[in-house]
């Protein structure tokens, strides 16, 4: 398998060509959060609707939409993320985010990256409520360090969205 096919698994290209939960939600009641990758100009917009933001981690993500534009890695990762967390609680989504970023960051450290993605988790994550599922296909990204920021853009935007929404 060439390096390219390692990076661009079929499931990634599928999410890129047919992104899940693509679109917008009315704000309010939804919250809109914009994420930028200043290096390449990619943008992810996360529209987040919670049943009751006051419930914190127990709030349920009743709806989620992804907007913006970017490369296949950033867009497919956000698409997979949306499919994985929609209908689940904020707490579960946070846990999955940690697991995903850990999958990216452990290798980032090994590859001599700055490891900044690993902050606060110590790099170890117990199995969560939500399986990585399709997201496992993105682990090839770690062999391409400059693309890790692409893969994590949607997730960082989601975390920011939880903070913005008070969830």
């Amino acid at each position: 398998m060439s390096g390219l096919e390692d990076l661009y698994r079929e499931i990634i290209l599928d999410h890129y060509r047919s992104p899940r939960n693509r679109g917008e939600l009315a704000v309010p009641p939804a919250h809109r959060t914009d994420g930028f990758n200043p290096l390449c100009g990619d943008e992810i917009v996360v529209y987040l609707e919670l049943d009751d933001p006051a419930k914190g981690d127990d709030a349920t993500i009743t709806d989620l939409r992804i907007g913006g534009q970017g490369c296949s890695i950033s867009q497919s990762s956000a698409s997979m993320m949306s499919a994985a967390v929609k209908g689940h609680t904020v707490g579960d989504a946070r846990h999955l985010t940690r697991a995903f970023k850990s999958m990216m960051s452990i290798h980032e450290g090994e590859l001599g990256g700055d490891g900044s993605e690993a902050e606060a988790d110590g790099g170890t994550v117990e199995p969560g409520e939500l399986p990585l599922g399709d997201l496992d296909a993105l682990k090839g990204v770690v062999k391409f360090p400059v693309r890790i920021k692409c893969a994590t853009l949607g997730w960082n935007t989601l975390l920011q969205g939880f903070d913005d929404a008070g969830g």
Binding site: S2, L4, L7, C40, G70, C71, I73, F144, R147, C150
Partner: peptide, 12 residues
């Protein structure tokens, strides 16, 4: 084709 993806293929 997104430029980031394009440059990745060109790199090969």
């Amino acid at each position: 084709i997104h430029p980031h993806d394009m440059s990745q293929v060109l790199n090969e």
